[in-house]
């Protein structure tokens, strides 16, 4: 990707007025889908994403069931009205890939061996997209899984970093994704220090690569705090403050 115009002004402000280390506002509400076993609504900048978890439940068709563990099924889907031009509702190759990497980013955190012969279904629906929707989707899905009471080793938090005007910036938005130099979405388990999703498109030097990864991890850690606070809010109300586990 080659940039055609400046996306950071002389005051160091980005197209949406943020500094290079600033994340878009994130709001997470837990338990928004009444019928689901667990759910979350995430607003990540202009992204509006709903995640619902059903399960553990019986597997249909039955031959998919595994005797020693639970199967995890994930669907990432964008609503036709979520984008600038209408998105065909049929699953695109992009959505097939994101569904896969999203499942692979959540599996390491789940104790699937605790639910043999069962299935857990995770549905992530992007109602409005704003760049970084896969990260916001993973963030929402992890909260929904926790809300469903699934045994987890850690929360999964996701955030992207990228390159804009040859500078490494946190949490790139739609414009920066389309016109900027690089996009690196990362999902991370903060307590276990494990990266469960990582992708990159765009060009980075070796130094920029390391800087970008470190910045994305910082973003993930910040997202983790918001996820924890949202879960605490649902289950304990305002009475308890979020404390570090360790």
């Amino acid at each position: 990707m080659t940039q055609t115009r400046n996306l950071i002004d002389e005051n160091g402000k980005r197209t949406d007025g943020r500094t290079i280390d600033e994340m878009r506002p994130v709001k997470i509400t837990v338990g928004t889908v009444k019928n689901a076993d667990g759910s979350a609504f995430v607003e990540f900048g202009k992204n509006k994403i709903v995640a619902a978890v059903y399960g553990p439940r019986e597997v249909h068709p039955k031959h998919l069931a595994q005797p020693d563990r639970c199967v995890l099924r994930c669907r990432y889907h964008m609503s036709p009205f979520s984008t600038d031009t209408r998105k065909n509702p049929a699953p695109s190759r992009r959505e097939v890939e994101i569904s896969k990497v999203m499942r692979e980013s959540l599996e390491p955190a789940l104790m699937l061996e605790d639910y043999p012969r069962a299935a857990i279904d995770v549905f992530v629906e992007v109602l409005q997209s704003d760049g970084g929707s896969r990260c916001a989707g993973i963030t929402a899905a992890a909260v929904a899984l926790a809300d469903a009471g699934i045994n987890m080793r850690d929360i999964v938090s996701a955030c992207a970093a990228g390159k804009v005007d040859d500078k490494i910036v946190l949490d790139i938005n739609d414009t920066e994704d389309k016109e900027g130099g690089a996009d690196m979405p990362v999902a991370y388990m903060p307590r276990l220090n494990q990266v469960t999703l990582m992708q990159l498109d765009g060009n980075l030097s070796p130094d920029q690569f390391n800087e970008c990864l470190d910045k994305a991890i910082e973003g993930c850690k910040a997202v983790a705090e918001i996820q924890k606070a949202a879960l605490m809010q649902k289950y304990f109300g305002n009475e308890t403050e979020v404390k570090e586990e360790q």
């Binding site: 390491p108 276990l192 494990q194 469960t196 992708q199 390391n210």
Partner: peptide, 25 residues
């Protein structure tokens, strides 16, 4: 590419530490 890193994809159901990724890079 000749210039540096241009694409990356982590796959499958396990995970990496940050140091493992930097070393692999």
């Amino acid at each position: 590419s000749d210039e540096g890193f241009c694409a990356l994809q982590k796959g499958y159901t396990g995970s990496f530490t940050v140091d493992q990724i930097k070393k692999a890079a």
